[in-house]
Simulated assay, not measured.
Amino acid sequence: MWSYAGSLSRFCERAQALIHGDLHTGSVMDTPNSTQVIDPEFAFYRPMGFDIGAFVGNLILAFFAQDGHAHEGNDRKEYKEWIWRTIEETWTLFQQKFTALWHQHKDGSGEAYLAEIYNKPELQQLVQEKFMKDLFHDTLGFGAAKMIRIVGVAHVEDFESIKDDSKRAACERQALELAKLLLEERRNFQAITEVV
């Protein structure tokens, strides 16, 4: 189980990268030719899984809110399918790009896994797989924690804009159930396709 104390410790002690700190779909500006991330006022050094988890968690919340916005003539099914594809593509492309950069810069001066120590390709591959698995599990844990905020002071517009209180509550309940599952069972997931 991912305890509050354990996750707080992980968040405070893992300064893996400069992260955005508040990454969600409203922070990403996308055109056919470029993608930009805005509002970096919360940027600081923390675990890499926090940002990607926050983004994935935000997409999952959007998915669960769709039933509250559905109406006759628009069941939101296609949009929900697009959200799931986007979640899968987000993690898959992140993982591919990250590992490609890792291979490209493996002999750089900032490399944590020095060639003198990890001098066998098989050993380097195992280290990379372990790192990415841990990063994936952090992503699920931090994403779930961000999803749980809908019951706190930080509200989510996807849910807030559902006019019918009973529909909104049903949508929020489903999102919280998945968040709880991801938080408690995150290490049982081996791939983003299992989450989707």
Rank of each mutant, 00 (worst) to 15 (best):
A17Q: 09
I83S: 01
F159N: 09
A70P: 12
A175P: 13
D67E: 10
K167Y: 12
I87G: 10
K167E: 01
A112C: 14
E184P: 04
F189M: 02
V56I: 15
G152R: 06
A115P: 14
D51I: 12
Q128N: 09
W84T: 02
S7P: 00
A144C: 02
I148Q: 11
Y118R: 02
G68H: 00
G141M: 13
L59I: 10
N58E: 05
K106W: 01
V195E: 07
R46M: 14
A54I: 11
Q125G: 09
A70N: 06
G26P: 15
V196D: 07
S34P: 04
A154F: 09
D39N: 13
V195C: 04
A154E: 07
K167L: 14
L126V: 08
S9W: 11
H103R: 14
P121K: 04
N74S: 14
R10M: 03
A170G: 02
G143F: 07
D165S: 11
G141L: 11
S166V: 04
V151P: 04
Y4S: 11
I87K: 12
G21L: 07
T31N: 12
A179Q: 01
N58Y: 09
H105E: 02
Q128C: 13
A62M: 03
A54M: 11
E122S: 09
F55C: 12
R85I: 03
K146P: 03
F44I: 00
S7I: 15
F55V: 07
F63C: 00
L23V: 14
N58P: 07
V56C: 13
Y118W: 02
T193A: 11
A65W: 02
A5C: 13
L126R: 09
E111M: 07
H103W: 07
E116C: 07
R10K: 08
G110C: 14
A175M: 04
G110Q: 05
F94N: 00
R14Y: 01
F64K: 09
Q125S: 12
R173A: 03
Y113L: 07
F189W: 14
V153W: 06
Q66P: 00
T139I: 03
F64C: 02
A65H: 10
H103L: 08
L178I: 00
T90E: 06
F55L: 14
E157L: 00
G6N: 05
L8R: 06
E88N: 14
W91F: 01
L123I: 06
Q36P: 01
W91L: 01
Q104H: 12
S166F: 05
L23S: 01
A15C: 05
G68V: 04
L183R: 15
R168I: 03
N58F: 10
C171H: 06
I162H: 01
F131C: 00
